[in-house]
Amino acid sequence: MTFDWSVVWQHRDALAAGTATTFLLTIATMAIAVPCGLLVAALRLYGPVPVRALATAYVELFRNLPLILVVYWAYYVLPILADVGLPALATGLAALSLNVTAYNSETFRAGINSIRRGQVEAAMALGMSRTQALRRVVAPQALRRITPVLASTWVSLFKDTSLVSVIAVTELAYVSMQIRAQTFRVLEMLTAMALIYWLLGYPQAKLVDWIQRRYAVTE
């Protein structure tokens, strides 16, 4: 069996563009899912009862669905709901955001809940308003616990962007598999794809470990 690895180098521009899209998707999803996750967490913690129930239902639903199914579902349902054809990239972004928002809201909620009630009560006894207590007492401590979890969500998301390849978003996995189909260099292209993901993902995983050590909370 002969392998022809030059095929990888020949398609370097396409692979680079795919890698850029993968990063773009990761960054854009996080940029949407952090504020939205915070909002959902706030609704669950402080909203009126019906809103709370709705937010809980959303979070539980999306945490208990395979992402790849959400991607397909968004691909077929969003155009009907929005009444316009959406580009694949926007659909993929929407599916990823729906999923990650649900996870982030749980991260925020757990972070806020991990700060004992007594601290807010103590702050209010010192004359702070509820908002002040949340901003100056709860938020700084919660942030310390939330950061490492957000970091590992980031790495999961980076990998999960590969799933939007099933609706032809031209990110790294889709591009690599397209080149494989055109050139029939199956082993070369699939190995290159795995290697590129590894090269990009490994440092990120190590960075997460470092953040987790740095922000470790000991009580």
Partner: peptide, 23 residues
């Protein structure tokens, strides 16, 4: 372990099904 945290499961599955038989 760290490598598996870095590579998407989709990539592992596709590689196992299409590339592993060649190797």
């Amino acid at each position: 372990i760290d490598s598996m945290r870095a590579i998407p499961v989709l990539v592992v599955l596709v590689w196992t099904f299409f590339a592993l038989p060649i190797v």
